[in-house]
Amino acid sequence: MKDTIKRLLQYTASVVLLYALIQLLIFAGIINEYYQVTLAMICINIILAVSLNLITGFTGQFSLGHAGFMSIGAYTCALMTLRVGGLFSFILGILLGAILAAMVGFIIGMPTLRLKGDYLAIATLGFAEIIRIILLNLDFTGGARGLADIPRYTNWTWLYIFTVICIVVTVNFIKSSHGRVCISIREDEIAAETLGINITRYKVLSFVIGAFFAGIAGALYASYFYYIKPGLFGFLKSIDILVIVVLGGMGSITGSILASIFLAVISTYLQAFAEFRMIIYAVILVIIMIFRPQGLMGTKEFKPEQVEKRIKERNNR
């Protein structure tokens, strides 16, 4: 028990420290406006990747429609801040966007999660496309032009808060009995079922949680980049998120975090060659799949305690 509290305090301290450090660098101007965009992309991608990892990496349900949930959060928050305005509308927009995304996740998940493997992938892709086409055709979403001049409320503080919440909640969930059940579904559905696990319920649950956080990511995105349109949340965006998850390792939260940082940094440097960026992306994807299909981390997690232990062991020798 004492150990648990000690570790909890250590984690909290390092989380606060990291926040303060980066905030300081922003104040000092070392992280300039240009790098702040990268920072925002990292946080948003972490939320997207961790939430998709819960669905695909941990529960084993292959989804190609994550951008669809993101778009729901983005449009909800954008409309809230455009129509109502004020910081309050921003926070409300985030929550409402997340809840709406979760609800759509439920409606989509209920029927489709009976499907398996690549059929499920195609069905989720189809649903995400339908969401995009609906956004394209509605009046109040601005059609193909989308929504512009969205007030910017998203800043480092909000990004950090939501990223930490997303990671902590997801990790807690995975480590709980409910999370173990989700993993057992990935491992063997039929065995899980005969052990009394309502697999549909847990598949839908992880889908809904994933959609919820994707909604938050979308909301943060809309309020950071001023401008959204349906085309931003198409098939390619879903693939983008999937690439992060696969690169980091399906079933590894730290893998998703590392991959988000890695890819955001790379794409910042490749900004000038947008077309080549996609070619390099594609090549990376194929090479990883051929030579290391489990991704950088596999299902393993990077834990500071293990590093500590290793160092101690080495010193003792």
Partner: peptide, 23 residues
């Protein structure tokens, strides 16, 4: 044999106790 092969022995057992979980 349909064990959860990539999970630990302990987790294999814990998963089957899941229905007793109240939280």
């Amino acid at each position: 044999i349909r064990l959860f092969k990539d999970l630990t022995v302990l987790d294999n057992i814990r998963i089957s106790i899941h229905k007793n979980v109240n939280y």
